[in-house]
Design a protein around this nucleic acid. Structure first.
Lengths: 342, 342
DNA sequence: TTGTAGGCGTTATCAT
DNA sequence: ATGATAACGCCTACAA
């Protein structure tokens, strides 16, 4: 087992000083060609690599970014993460990831765990519980300390920082219009509890479209489902109770499940009923019929978030940190598949 | 923006020495109760936290672990990662993740990016390309340097280190036996290119079962599909060509797609044909019929991998690092759903 | 051209 | 009970 080699080792071995070695390895003009070659050869031979930790301590920057997300076993977050990781690695940054598991406490703990010099900035999407309580002191603290923070998707208006969001309201509006243009009259909205800001925004778009098309809002057509452990009967009861000819769902699971129940009830898709879901995941692509979806372009969101964060981190280093906070809006698109007419 | 506070700040502010502050914050007996209280109060007020980077440099350990996996937008890896993250965080470790994207070069780059003091050890699953080339010098180098390494799932026999794998052969055997016990005679195997060690192992189990049940192996029943961009015609041609009454698939996507084609061809599931796939992901749970699967217990694998790694890291610190390498085998289980008879 | 010294923030050993 | 000093590995302004 060969130990990691340091400047000190090289210096001692070659009978020169540490700073000579340091300069030689940076190809400094100060050092004679001879010694440079000797030192560089030696360093290469022993595969010298500067110790990142020491460099971080010196530079007061780690080239690490911290990502705190509610869930990793979830297609959307996974794609966003992919975008973050891709961009960050390209810029020489590493990504430390923590999962809050939709828990406020874990979110706070995760942030504290990272906020001790381990990272140069945060990229986050709020946990369900955090959105519900709307307790954001942990975010405020980070911002107050001057640590760059980028929020994506599940954001809050109560904190001033960079943000990356989807045009949720507009795309929900468009999706609803699409259903209306198909001639649908009784469009249901399958959604989560209302404390998710994105669900709220999507509901707004849905309602706006209906209103514009002169259709009276009917709260009975709004089906609120729990995040997990969905019971088929609930959905079946819903279809039993309400005559529905289209469903807009804020995620793909709800859409798939509603579609499944509709099929069992003998409805033809998309002849009798249309479906559109948010999230272009595997479920939508491999369902039967394949689901028309709102693609959230998670990778783009992630890349953009990482770019905003790293830009700000590097700007701070250069001293001109007083750039105004921006909110970048990623444009969702509708991918038409078999669950809608066209 | 209040700057991060350090021992030095506190010392200066309170007119004591840095070492006094350090000791006081550790509740050392050496320090008088008075000064301790004063210092601790001050530290709490200004929310002092030791700088992790400095501590890492001093201790020569980072409490970070590096994870390099082929793909994050993939249910199995995602669940393993979840297990790693969960266990590691519980032990006060952070997780830095890099995605190799099934590319050998990226895998090497990722490892180099981390292997400069940023982490205490690696958890990895090999990229497709790495398995194909079987070039593992980058792993060997890490091991030679004495950096703990744990391989999971996509491992190689050519490197000596801790490993966590699934009992792929046995469970494939069991799954095949299950199909045989249903009375199936023409069982297809839907698999990937053979350089994946797991696919190989699964194929072995499949073949063993057939042999034991006195069924002659028929290579025409082995359907090799590309990892992505699967063409339905290929599958359809396969069904056209071969009379098949069951399919064992090494992943869930292949199973779902085969199932879909079979349905289109008018076959009844599971009356005419049964399906079993590996990976208990969303697709299997929400397919129609719901797919019987081999659950790989990714979270368990991840937890176990993290435990093995951290144990070894901490053992090394205590000096007794000469523990033999272990291979931990996680027992897969079959989850029976609607795509098989029971 | 090369080397010395100080510092990044923390900890541990050894004075006082 | 408190403080000075050195060290972790690296970098850099300044001396020689």
């Amino acid at each position: 087992m060969k130990q990691k080699i340091t400047l000190k080792h090289i210096a001692r071995e070659l009978g020169v000083s540490i700073s000579t070695v340091s300069k030689a390895l940076k190809n400094s003009e100060e050092i004679s060609v001879d010694t440079k070659e000797k030192i560089q050869a030696f360093a290469k031979l022993y595969n010298y690599k500067p110790n990142n930790i020491a460099v971080s301590l010196k530079n007061k920057r780690t080239k690490n970014i911290g990502v705190v997300i509610p869930d990793i076993v979830h297609h959307f977050f996974t794609t966003v993460f992919r975008g973050i990781e891709k961009y960050a690695n390209g810029q020489g940054y590493n990504v430390i990831i923590c999962v809050s598991d939709e828990s406020f406490d874990k979110e706070v703990i995760n942030m504290e765990m990272l906020n001790n010099g381990s990272i140069d900035g945060f990229i986050m999407s709020l946990s369900a519980e955090t959105q519900q309580k709307n307790d954001i002191n942990h975010l405020r603290e980070v911002v107050d300390q001057g640590i760059p923070l980028v929020l994506f998707d599940r954001v809050t208006d109560d904190i001033d920082c960079d943000k990356v969001i989807l045009n949720d309201r507009e795309i929900a509006y468009k999706a609803t219009v699409k259903l209306l243009e198909e001639g649908r009259k009784r469009i249901a909205l399958a959604t989560t509890e209302s404390y998710f800001n994105v669900s709220e925004k999507r509901a707004e778009g849905y309602k706006q479209a209906l209103t514009e098309y002169g259709i009276e809002l009917d709260d009975n057509l709004v089906l609120v489902l729990p995040y997990d452990d969905i019971k088929e009967e609930v959905i079946n009861d819903f279809f039993e109770r309400e005559a529905v000819d289209a469903v807009l769902s804020v995620n793909e699971i709800f859409a798939i499940q509603c579609m499944s129940v509709a099929k069992k009830r003998g409805m033809k898709i998309p002849e009798d009923i249309s479906f559109i879901g948010f999230t272009d995941g595997l479920l939508s692509r491999y369902s039967n019929p394949r689901l028309t979806v709102v693609a959230q372009h998670g990778v783009t969101m992630g890349e953009e978030a990482a770019k905003m964060l790293i830009d700000r981190v590097e700007r701070e280093i250069d001293g001109n940190d007083e750039e105004a906070y921006r909110t970048h809006i990623v444009e969702a698109t509708i991918i038409e598949r078999e669950s809608t007419k066209n």
